[in-house]
């Protein structure tokens, strides 16, 4: 099966600063993927490159096999920007007509069904709608395109809890029904926990964690025990320690166990929130990509190495 997203040595430089660097990962089709990272980690730049809003400086990015350098890739995905821009003077009907006029695969019945499910009048002007209602229209526009991939930048950030709950339900139901692969960037870790079955964590412009939630969480352990000395105890240091801290006499660490952990330590499987917090606190933790998220070695381009294949070299 083709991957929904395949990035190889992907990089974007603004002036001298790399917003995204050496990014290589895959996202299998049909997943609901959370894109997580601190502010400025490169999430928006990644989404921008997938939607042709931003041109990659290095490497390649393919959506369902089509490189983003080809304009045809636009028909494969829908993008919902953070501020959900719509024409405020258009009516709902005109907004949907825009979708129809600009997208060959437009599904008017689907878009209208999503709008009507929110008891919205087609004649209402966008400017008179509430935040939740506007988001619903934006979702209708996004799904009406019948995308294979839906890219959402902080979709729920500006919604009240009721609207957030409603939109999350709408998103999950429609994505399941249409078989849409979803990538959503978000800061709301509990929200991701209920919605996502795949994770990509970026920090400092690089991928730190990518793979199925089911595989990533068991790969980590939360260890607690009595503190014996300063720093990480030697018997834990042979594992990959993502993050550790000491509270009073108790030592806690998030680790990727390599083999057995000593008897003195209490072990538990961390929640997604605990894993994500661990990686967000430690941006330079060693990356972990599950096999489905890893790209094949042979294709890894110059962009992977320190010199960086600037521009086209990697695209070939």
């Amino acid at each position: 099966m083709t991957d929904a997203i395949e990035a190889r040595g992907l990089g974007k430089r603004y002036g001298r600063k790399w917003a995204v660097r050496d990014c290589s990962f895959r996202l299998p089709a049909g997943r609901i993927c959370g894109l997580v990272g601190p502010n400025g980690a490169g999430k928006s730049t990644l989404l921008g490159m997938a939607t042709r809003l931003v041109q990659p400086t290095a490497g390649t990015l393919r959506l369902f096999g089509t490189p983003v350098s080809e304009p045809a890739v636009l028909a494969k995905s829908s993008f919902l920007a953070q501020d959900k821009p719509l024409f405020t003077r258009f009516t709902v009907a005109e907004t949907l007509r825009m979708g129809q006029e600009l997208n060959p695969g437009w599904d008017q019945a689907l878009a209208e069904r999503i709008v009507r499910a929110g008891n919205l009048s087609l004649d209402a002007r966008i400017g008179t709608l509430s935040g939740g209602q506007r988001t619903r229209v934006a979702f209708a526009l996004a799904f009406g395109k019948r995308p294979e991939l839906l890219l959402l930048d902080e979709p729920m950030a500006d919604l009240d809890p009721l609207a957030r709950h409603e939109m999350a339900g709408l998103l999950m139901a429609e994505a399941a029904e249409q078989g849409t692969t979803v990538v959503m960037s978000s800061h709301m870790l509990n929200e991701l926990e209920t919605m996502c079955d795949y994770l990509v964590v970026v920090a400092g412009g690089r991928v730190r964690l990518a793979g199925e939630v089911d595989a990533l969480l068991p790969a980590h352990s939360l260890v607690t025990g009595a503190r014996s000395a300063e720093g990480v105890p030697p018997e834990l240091a042979r594992h990959t320690v993502i993050e550790s801290h000491t509270t009073g006499r108790q030592f806690t660490a998030l680790i990727r166990p390599e083999g057995r952990v000593g008897e003195d330590w209490r072990l538990s499987t961390p929640t997604m929130e605990e894993v994500l917090l661990g990686y967000l606190r430690t941006p330079d933790a060693p990356p972990l990509l599950t096999p489905s998220a890893r790209v094949a070695e042979e294709g890894q381009s110059e962009g992977q190495r320190e010199g960086l294949g600037r521009g086209e070299g990697a695209a070939a």
Binding site: R52, P71, L74, A75, F79, A81, P85, L86, L102, K145
Partner: peptide, 16 residues
């Protein structure tokens, strides 16, 4: 200014 450039140029037609 209003972000609709991002909305329109990410439909199937493209920015050119």
């Amino acid at each position: 200014e209003r972000g609709t450039a991002r909305l329109v140029t990410t439909q199937s037609t493209g920015r050119n």
